[in-house]
């Protein structure tokens, strides 16, 4: 494992965001069980290093497009926990006024072009944002997140091709959590090495350990730099794992408990905390304090969400048209 090359402040920031996502997701699992969160929710626990590592490599004015498993991206891009939690509960104070929910979580003000209820649904949006950046002669970039399940959709191929032909400033980030709902990537995808998918579009590609926040950050920084300089899109595969099932009704019969334990042993928060302590960047006490600080933030977010009012009936017809 490489030496940790981060400042104390940055390490704290990365660790805190990963903890926020983990505790946010664990809390939602509780709230689902209590039926305080109704409907479904796809949880990002286990994959924190991808969102946090990637988004820490871009600027606030850059864009991201997210997925149905989008809470982590939203938090990492700067979404405020109380408004995000309220949105997931469908409350009027939610970041989308309770009209989007978990599947459409989007704090547009932070440059987040939205979670998406359709697999691969953000790919066209991200590609178009890249086109817009290029036409406006801006130096912004777009991070387009999607899962391994999106790799076999037509829109994936159409967008990668379009971005490559026009040299758009988009980094396509595949979060390979190894299962599209229940079907393993090995059973769904004709190529074993997923980076090969980029070869067809003459796009540079790289595979990275998606459980290592610094490795993700380093790779994304490199490709973002390329994109900002006008060198076009790239394709990054982050190998990771979702701890919970696809959704709350998922009994996880398609994978073994041993496999789950192997991935949990490489937990991105645990391993990064240990590294920071070992390298003397953060003390054990600081790590624990951070954990408690996040826990109280999450409690406040839940309190805000639970106590928030439901949308007024007249909201039903608002916002269909500008």
């Amino acid at each position: 494992m490489a030496e940790v090359k981060v400042s104390c402040d940055e390490a704290r920031h990365l660790l805190k965001q990963m903890m926020q996502i983990r505790q946010f997701e664990d809390k939602i699992m509780d709230l689902l069980a209590q039926d305080i969160v109704q409907g479904g929710s796809h949880l990002y626990a286990g994959e924190e290093a991808v969102a946090v590592g990637a988004i820490s490599a871009i600027r606030p004015d850059d864009y991201i497009a997210s997925t149905h498993r989008g809470h982590g991206h939203c938090i990492a891009k700067g979404g405020r926990l109380p408004e995000l939690m309220a949105e997931i509960l469908g409350k009027a104070t939610g970041v989308c006024k309770g009209k989007g929910g978990s599947l459409h979580l989007a704090d547009v003000a932070t440059g987040n072009l939205g979670a998406n209820g359709i697999v691969g649904g953000g790919m066209g949006i991200a590609t178009g944002a890249g086109l817009s950046i290029k036409m406006r002669k801006s130096d912004q970039v777009v991070l387009c997140f999607f899962g391994d399940g999106a790799l076999n959709l037509g829109i994936f191929h159409e967008c990668l091709n379009m971005a490559a032909v026009w040299k758009l400033p988009v980094v396509y980030i595949c979060e390979n959590n190894h299962y599209g709902m229940s079907v393993s990537v090995k059973r769904a995808c004709a190529v074993g090495d997923l980076t090969k998918r980029a070869l067809a579009y003459d796009m540079p590609a790289e595979s990275v350990d998606g459980m290592d926040v610094l490795a993700v950050k380093e790779a994304v920084s490199k490709w973002v730099g390329q994109a900002r300089e006008g060198n076009g899109p790239s394709f990054l595969v982050c190998h990771t794992y979702r701890y919970y099932g696809h959704s709350r009704s998922d009994p996880r019969v398609y994978r073994t408990r041993e496999e789950e334990e192997e991935w949990r042993a490489r937990d991105p928060i645990k391993t990064f905390s240990i590294r920071c302590v070992q390298e003397g960047i953060l003390s054990q006490e600081e790590v624990e304090a951070l954990d408690r600080e996040v826990a109280s933030e999450i409690e406040e977010a839940v309190k805000f969400a639970v106590e928030s009012p439901w949308p007024e009936p007249e909201e039903l017809y608002e916002d269909v048209y500008a």
Binding site: I125, A129, G130, R136, I155, E158, M162
Partner: peptide, 26 residues
């Protein structure tokens, strides 16, 4: 050619990218 763009035969990407461009200033 910047403002009148020939695309590949990719209807989903044409409309999807149109949306992405529309919500980011174009």
């Amino acid at each position: 050619e910047e403002r009148v763009r020939d695309t590949a035969i990719s209807e989903a990407a044409i409309v999807g990218a149109g949306l992405g461009a529309a919500i980011t200033g174009m």
